[in-house]
Amino acid sequence: MSLQTTLRGTGVALVTPFDAAGSIDFNALERVIDFVIDGGVQYVVTLGTTGETPTLSKEEKKDIAVFTFEKVNSRVPVVVGAGGNNTAEVIKEMAYLPCDKAAAILSASPYYNKPSQEGLFQHYKAIAANTPAPILLYNVPGRTGRNLEAKTTLRLAHDVANIAGIKEASGDMAQCMQILRDKPENFLVVSGDDALVLPQVACGMEGVISVAANSFPKQFTSMVNACLNGDFANAKKLNDQLIEGYELLFAENNPAGVKAAMQILGLIENEVRLPVVPLSEGLYEKMKDYVGRLS
């Protein structure tokens, strides 16, 4: 079955709940999984960067992935995150994690070392040659420091087996439209920008991997579904209610914003791992007011 069928719509990049001692709160993670699935998401992403993977140990990552598969229990597909700036270690991580059960592997492009476009191509080519599941490229230059250019994405899409799609979070609409115009027919393109989903679906994207769907799954998935059904008038009404939420979620740091919202909703503790810190008091109060008005 094509990823365009299994991963069409709203995916959610799950947060990793922590308790006051800084340990993973698996009871809270189960609540979050049930909350987003009941809220209508089409699939979940475990070990995305919203899950604070840079601060998780190897063992914690595996425990989270195994737990997520168990608690999702085939209700929706599961995508596993495995990316980084050490190509050989990414390949080892894919073998260590339960990626063979995944609908796809979401792999963020290398950060900090800023490889050339040829370096990015060779990185993904090597990963794709060693993957147990289809690879979704993840382009987020605001975090990685290097844009995966449209020409490189399209080269990977056309020339490399097992490269099945992309989460495109450059925010560059011209780049997005070029990919959508020239991609292979069965290549999945989803948004990585909650605030741009409406126009990006209008241009041809097939959904989103979302942060906001952790805290506002019902409202957000309703908006995305309306977009995918071509009902952009209703989608705009729903999106207008969410614009303030997008701004609050990302005003200081992700996932500090979404974790604050989820704590207000009673799902998790408001705990993050350094170097991320919780929302400032003033922004937290604004989030509390917004969550109360939205729900």
Rank of each mutant, 00 (worst) to 15 (best):
Q175R: 13
L228S: 07
V197P: 04
V224D: 11
D193P: 00
E168C: 01
A169P: 13
A169V: 07
A213I: 12
A202M: 14
I209G: 12
E206C: 11
F232S: 02
V190K: 13
P184D: 03
M205R: 12
F232V: 00
F216V: 14
V190R: 14
V189F: 01
A213C: 10
D193M: 02
D193G: 00
K183S: 08
Q200T: 07
A212D: 06
G207M: 09
E185L: 08
A226Y: 14
L180R: 03
M205N: 11
A202K: 07
M177I: 02
L228N: 10
G207A: 13
D231V: 09
L228E: 04
L188R: 05
V197T: 14
A202Y: 12
F232A: 01
S170E: 04
F220K: 11
P217E: 02
G207F: 06
T221P: 07
V201R: 08
A174P: 02
V224I: 13
M173A: 12
A195R: 12
F220R: 10
Q200L: 10
F187I: 02
G192A: 00
I179N: 03
P184Q: 04
G204A: 07
P184V: 03
N186D: 14
C203V: 02
M223Q: 14
F220T: 11
R181F: 00
D172V: 08
A212Y: 03
G192L: 08
A235S: 03
L188T: 02
A195V: 01
M223P: 14
P217R: 06
C227T: 05
A226V: 10
G207P: 15
T221H: 13
A235P: 06
D172C: 10
F187K: 02
C227S: 08
L228Y: 10
M173D: 15
G171A: 01
P199K: 06
C176T: 15
N229Q: 11
N186G: 00
M223E: 12
F187W: 05
K183Y: 02
K218P: 00
F216A: 15
G230Y: 09
I209R: 08
M173G: 08
N214E: 12
K218R: 14
A195M: 06
T221G: 06
N214P: 12
M223H: 15
I179E: 02
G204E: 07
A235R: 10
M205G: 03
A195W: 06
F220Y: 15
P184S: 03
L198I: 05
K183G: 07
C227E: 07
N186C: 00
V189Y: 01
I179P: 04
F216K: 07
P184A: 01
F220C: 13
D194S: 09
A233W: 00
N234V: 01
M205S: 13
A195Y: 09
S222V: 05
A174H: 05
V201K: 04
Q200S: 07
Q219I: 08
A233P: 01
S215A: 15
N234W: 00
L228P: 00
T221Q: 11
P184Y: 13
G204Y: 04
L180A: 01
T221D: 07
S170D: 00
G230I: 06
G192D: 09
L188D: 03
L188V: 04
A195K: 12
A169N: 01
Q175Y: 05
F220G: 15
F220I: 07
P217K: 03
S222L: 12
D182Y: 12
S215Q: 09
F187E: 02
A195Q: 11
Q178A: 15
P199Y: 06
M177N: 15
D194N: 09
A233H: 08
F232R: 00
A212H: 03
